[in-house]
């Protein structure tokens, strides 16, 4: 593996290797000593064109636990905000000897472009409405550790799939790993050509699902006529207590965060025992350690 640009690029063997490696990383993270010498002398650059403190911190923690040198290069207060092109930034990072660049960017495909300009590895930490592969990996990891398997799992992805990079990565990865995904939401927010099951009625899928993944819904979508009002959205597609109780006993509720409590998810659900939201954050570090190790832990 040279880059991680898209979850759709991962075959089942590679994806499973990442999850297995993450499991080992997680067992190491449980110990008193949390730093491993593995990537000593390697430089990881966090290149963030969007504010995402949680994702940046997760990557930073992962890199530091593997003893990599971390450089944070955020769009604010750098030459990036002065209009330097991505290509020029890439050449700068190249000159700095970056072994890996973790990029978060509002434009879909920016990591693909970056990968053509730098020699090091490129890790997509979320690009536009395209993909967020490490989120999908950590979600798969969370499902596997909670439910013991991925093959055959029924996963409902609920909400604004159209604009969600998390959904795209999850749909691709879960299909590769043998789970069965159903997209749920208003027709305006569900692309019909993702080659997966679609359902417009949340209530009808709940009783027969192992995982409900709630996506963040941005309130601005309302102004673009994707749905009439917050109230109507929450009523039709929000996961509240009564809906949660329709789920099978073992089913879990996931959310990539940050949540709109009261919109797509009720506080009662977010804080319930079914919710894996806090676990997802912890698993994020292990999965990102695994990815960094698999990208940088060998001959370049």
């Amino acid at each position: 593996m040279k880059h991680l640009l898209s979850a759709a690029d991962l075959d089942a063997a590679t994806a499973t290797l990442v999850l297995d490696t993450a499991a080992e990383m997680a067992s190491l993270a449980g110990r008193e000593v949390k730093k491993l010498p593995t990537l000593r002398g390697r430089t990881v650059v966090n290149l963030f064109y969007e504010d995402s403190t949680r994702t940046r911190i997760s990557f930073e923690a992962a890199a530091k636990r593997l003893s990599a040198d971390v450089i944070n290069f955020s769009a604010k207060g750098s030459s990036v905000s002065k209009g330097e092109s991505l290509k020029d930034t890439a050449l700068t990072l190249q000159a700095m000897g970056a072994d890996a660049v973790v990029i978060r960017h509002p434009a879909s495909g920016a990591p693909h472009r970056l990968a053509t300009w730098v020699e090091g590895s490129v890790l997509n930490a979320g690009d536009g409405t395209h993909e967020h592969p490490t989120q999908a990996l950590l979600d798969a990891y969370t499902m596997r550790s909670r439910l013991g398997r991925l093959a055959g799992l029924k996963v409902a992805v609920v909400g604004d799939v159209l604009h969600s990079r998390v959904a795209r990565s999850n749909v691709a990865l879960l299909a590769t790993l043998g789970a069965k995904v159903t997209l749920v939401g208003p027709p305006t927010l569900i692309p019909v050509d993702l080659r997966t099951e679609v359902c417009y009625d949340l209530d009808s899928v709940l009783s027969d699902t192992d995982v409900v993944m709630m996506l963040r819904v941005q309130r601005e979508r309302m102004n673009d006529s994707y749905f009439p009002s917050e109230r109507e959205y929450a009523r039709r597609y929000g996961l509240d207590g009564p809906r949660m109780r329709k789920l099978p006993e073992h089913a879990i509720v996931m959310h990539p965060g940050p949540m709109n409590r009261g919109m797509e998810i009720a506080p009662e659900v977010a804080d319930s025992a079914r919710s894996t939201i806090v676990e997802q954050v912890a698993n994020g570090v292990s999965v990102r350690m695994a990815v960094l190790y698999l990208l940088l832990g060998g001959k370049s």
């Binding site: 879909s108 993909e131 080659r195």
Partner: peptide, 13 residues
């Protein structure tokens, strides 16, 4: 950004 269809959906454009 590009033709509305399966490829655009996949690429997030």
């Amino acid at each position: 950004q590009m033709h509305e269809g399966e490829v655009a959906t996949r690429l997030g454009l």
